[in-house]
Design a protein around this nucleic acid. Structure first.
Lengths: 343, 343
DNA sequence: CTGAAAGCGCTTACAG
DNA sequence: CTGAAAGCGCTTACAG
């Protein structure tokens, strides 16, 4: 293994000088710098991560706390892992995955990562309105940034799509097309039950939209079981007051829903209109759905920035800065081919 | 921060004794062990990861080298990240994501992770038939395990679905249903061009199946652009020798393909049969496709095991063990509702 | 059965 | 502009 001593010897300087050249925290003569740089390149030197973090209390790693994938695979989780890894790389961080070890103690993995200093900060996914992980990390004085807007918005830095507004935008698009009876298909019920922020806010947005617009909005919870989901849709469609439009906050289910509707002889948008809430493009297989997309790349960049800032803010000697920052992203309706005037 | 000294003091023993209790590498009296354990629990002590790795040259981390997500998001990548994080946790490892920093140097991130000892071993995804990352890691004496079967099967430990066989099984199912003209829709062309192992082997399996069974198999490359893909399918369907069946090694595209066929008035399986090669259940939105699934959980467990074993094998004092191990998983056809006798 | 001591590879005040 | 030295928190031979 190549150490700083090897580089120092090769360059004819002291190890501390190599360190200063690499960190840039001291003025170094051009000759010395060039000699050190040459030795570094020559030997392929990379500072030992363990030694560096032991000494400097910086690891260059962000821990990503994943939600329990118990209810099956979450496409959105995978998408965020990519986005985060990329955004983090841009800021010089690596991303460490932290999965909950079991049902009974959902933040044991995260707590271990924090206490053992595997990372400088945690990025929390699948944020709940009242998320115990936030308090757990605060108790450890461990910096966090959230993908998701908690009930207490000053609890920690966060970024999110404005889900209340997204649901409103979707319902309004249907309302403006003349639909009087809209079914809001919310996230899977496990998410509703866990009070995930996007679930709660999406539903709330739909209810507010109903109240504000005078449209009848029937909120229905989705499920990962397609047969069960189609049963719920059928119950709605067979009722006396059948909806003429759906707003769907479960993008992974949309291809299946469209197939199911087609099998029932229902054509979209001729017979029924549909808007997706919080979809991402890769989901839809080229299907031109009217939608509000989840801005994964922007959210990944934002949360990485917030996490990096939280690391700086937690450093000793930093003044206890004012308000807790956040990045709220306004929804943007993309008009596709799945909304038509109400029959 | 709680250190081993704090624990030692609280328990009234020497720091080294605490270390031995935690590692279990020395006989300790019950009384001492209990006192140490109580102090550990009381103080919430977790050993500092940097210090531990500096001293022991073990990090407890596996680096996951992701393929470039340049052509858009790969659902399968996300699925493996979950699977790996879970399997690794079971063996006491955490997973660090390593994304290629840019096009020009696809293993710079991995090389840095290895040289800086951020991890004990690398798990490589999106393995190419001749993968430069394998040689790069070998040059550093850094243990690896592959998700994908390289051309040189003794280059490194690997696990994979038997893709040759999977394509054969799929084509044979269609052959047995009487289909004489099968179109094998291979992976996206970027994967073919990069000579990803699953691409090359899937195509090879299809070609062998054709030769062995006497079925005409037309190999066609998929693409992430749905419009372009549908164009390619149309060209086949409009030709004089139109296929009566498809074997599709691009599961994410299947919902779109089925919709496109339906729009052309082609009903599956009445008019055209279809088998998915390497799908995973979450992909299909409840669609009962005849398929060979990608065993993500088994592969994740296998590659983690291989990586952990490679770490042990690389430890000084370990005899240079014999053959390079691998875990080849036989394909298994799941009969769904998308294959019918040829018209 | 337990402890005192060396040292892993860095960074950063301290000194010149 | 550069160097010598201390020390981060552990693990593990060495000693008893």
């Amino acid at each position: 293994m190549v150490t700083i001593k090897d580089v120092a010897q090769a360059a004819g300087v002291a190890p501390s000088t190599v360190s200063y050249v690499l960190s840039g925290s001291r003025k170094i003569s051009d000759a010395t710098r060039a000699a050190v740089q040459a030795a570094v390149d020559e030997l392929g030197y990379h500072p030992n991560a363990g030694a560096r973090s032991l000494r400097s209390t910086r690891t260059g790693v962000l821990a990503l706390a994943l939600p329990l994938p118990a209810r099956g695979y979450l496409p959105v989780g995978g998408r965020f892992m990519y986005g985060l890894s990329e955004a983090a790389g841009q800021l010089g961080y690596l991303v460490l995955l932290v999965t909950p070890p079991g049902e009974e103690d959902p933040d044991a993995g995260l707590e271990r990562a924090a206490r053992s200093r595997f990372a400088d900060a945690a990025v929390i996914m699948g944020v709940q309105m009242e998320d115990p992980r936030i308090d757990a990390m605060r108790a450890l004085d461990f910096p966090v940034a959230l993908i998701g807007r908690p009930a207490d918005e000053s609890a920690a830095p966060w970024t999110d799509l404005d889900w209340d507004e997204a649901a409103l935008v979707a319902v309004r698009a249907l309302h403006e097309a003349g639909h009087k009876r809209v079914c809001y298909l919310a996230t899977v019920e496990e998410d509703v039950r866990a009070r995930r922020s996007y679930s709660v806010r999406g539903i709330r947005g739909a209810e507010r939209a109903a109240a504000g617009l005078g449209t009848s909005v029937d909120v229905c919870h989705s499920t990962g079981d397609p047969a069960e989901l189609f049963g719920r849709l059928d119950a709605r469609l067979d009722s006396a007051e059948a909806p003429t439009a759906f707003a769907v906050q479960h993008p992974a289910a949309i291809p299946g829903i469209l197939r199911h509707l087609a099998a029932r002889g229902i054509e979209v948008p001729r017979d029924v209109s549909l808007v997706a809430v919080g979809s991402f493009p890769e989901d839809l297989g080229g299907l031109d759905v009217t939608r509000v997309e989840l801005p994964v790349a922007r959210m990944s960049a934002a949360v990485t920035r917030l996490a990096a800032d939280a690391v700086e803010a937690a450093a000793p000697g930093t003044p206890a800065g004012g308000a807790t920052p956040h990045t709220l992203i306004a929804p943007h309706l993309i008009r596709g081919a799945t909304v038509a005037p109400a029959p």
